[in-house]
Design a protein around this nucleic acid. Structure first.
Lengths: 254, 254
DNA sequence: CAGTGGTCTAGACCACCGG
DNA sequence: CGGTGGTCTAGACCACTGC
């Protein structure tokens, strides 16, 4: 097929397996269907279970499969498109921004985050935890860092830690004039707390979206959002919900 | 420390190893430094090599390490910021867009790409291969699909396959009025051809950036760009080159 | 409880790089 | 050539899910 010519140096078994399985998924399986268990599959293809697992790992990374301990391996639906840039010029927490405020405390941000603020040190900040849900599933966990100086009207003593305080911080942010924002996307692995929130194992691949919010000539807030890389496709701009990336169409099993 | 309390259910060895190694990288190693080989490291930590490798894999995924067969494992520099949205309203191939045109042929796009064009079928399209280089390293490979109908002035017979044809396609695109574009980012694994171009093994994690270009009321072109996920951080908006994501600062070894 | 995926081991061989 | 990371095996045990 196409460029699949004779290979003098054969590709790794797990890679070949991945391809074979991928084609099988396209043609013989329906979304949600359960695959045979790993031991059976490995035996069927004449490879060790570890090798079979390496192939499954690839397919899971590509969003084709979903594996759950104690349950089995199922065919994943197409990735859900998650809009990241709607309301390009809105603060987090603006009306209808798809995030649910979970909690807020005061904490010292990791140094990597602190470095995004101008002249930042070990300063304590408002730290708001939020969750994003799509199709009834948690797809992202966010930590929003807001220096106390950015929301001077809010006295930390007034509002105890908890969801109410998170909402208060967000409310105060809306009062500022947002001068711009700056986004970056990179690959990461879920830390223990995020993994739990996303119903994944620690180390699961995530897309880390870091956003700096500018106001008053400086960085007024920083958001670090981790999206499930296996189930999400981040869209920028006014996106239509079109499936991409999968080489073939999902078909119904006969 | 901090929340690292007693764990009734211990975390996996490889995850703990990842953390230990990560901290060691922060404090005891300089960028570019070579780590002890895997067999020695495994022995030193009293684990099987496979377990050690699982930890290294995590760190490589996070952009902390770089492994090269036959050479060794080195400490990776901070990810390079790669701007994805410069010239938000320019066609690909606009002056100074950081891409190098490599080649162009006529080919039928994969069905997943074809679906992004309105009413597309097995139609042949101009297919331009481009490469993006940053800091002397290939960081991304792109396939740009342009329906023949989008660039009517260009007769395929005129220009034989090759770089010249790629430049011709891009030149014709500039003549159209770009009405908008739509981007999506998702995780993928490098296909064999992309992997080769990016100097990685097949299956290496990549960030797939899919862009639809609109002109004349329809999709005039689609670009599928795969960025090395280990070494790149995609930036949107006018980004400054600030390091993020790494919990600690890179320090010089004593 | 049985069955699933997740972790871990000890060892072997291969592909690649550099001297 | 020796040393590196990459692949693969066969087996064991653990953690979780659902019945």
């Amino acid at each position: 097929m196409g460029t699949t010519q004779l290979e003098s140096v054969p590709e790794p078994k797990y890679w070949h397996l991945r391809t074979v399985l991928s084609e099988a998924l396209d043609s013989d399986f329906a979304v949600g269907e359960i695959l045979p268990n790993e031991r059976d599959l490995a035996a069927r293809f004449g490879v060790a279970r570890a090798t079979l697992r390496q192939a499954l790992e690839q397919l899971e990374l590509e969003g084709r499969l979903q594996r759950r301990r104690g349950v089995g391996t199922t065919v994943a639906p197409p990735r859900t498109a998650v809009s990241v840039s709607t309301a390009q010029h809105d603060w987090p927490g603006a009306p209808g921004d798809a995030w649910q405020t979970a909690d807020a405390t005061a904490a010292v941000p990791p140094t990597a985050v602190a470095r995004l603020f101008d002249a930042a040190t070990g300063e304590e900040m408002h730290t708001v935890r939020r969750t994003r849900v799509a199709h009834g599933q948690a797809v992202a966990a966010e930590l929003l860092y807001v220096p106390v100086g950015s929301v001077p009207e809010l006295s930390a003593i007034d509002v105890p830690s908890g969801p109410a305080r998170g909402r208060a911080v967000l409310r105060e942010l809306q009062r500022l004039e947002l001068e711009g924002q700056e986004r970056a996307v990179e690959l990461g692995s879920a830390r223990a707390d995020d993994a739990k929130e996303l119903d994944r194992l620690p180390g699961a691949p995530v897309l880390v979206v870091t956003t700096r919010y500018f106001a008053g000539g400086r960085t007024a807030a920083v958001s670090v959002a981790t999206y499930r890389a296996d189930t999400c496709r981040l869209t920028f701009g006014d996106s239509v919900d079109v499936e991409i990336n999968h080489p073939g169409q999902q078909r119904q099993a006969s």
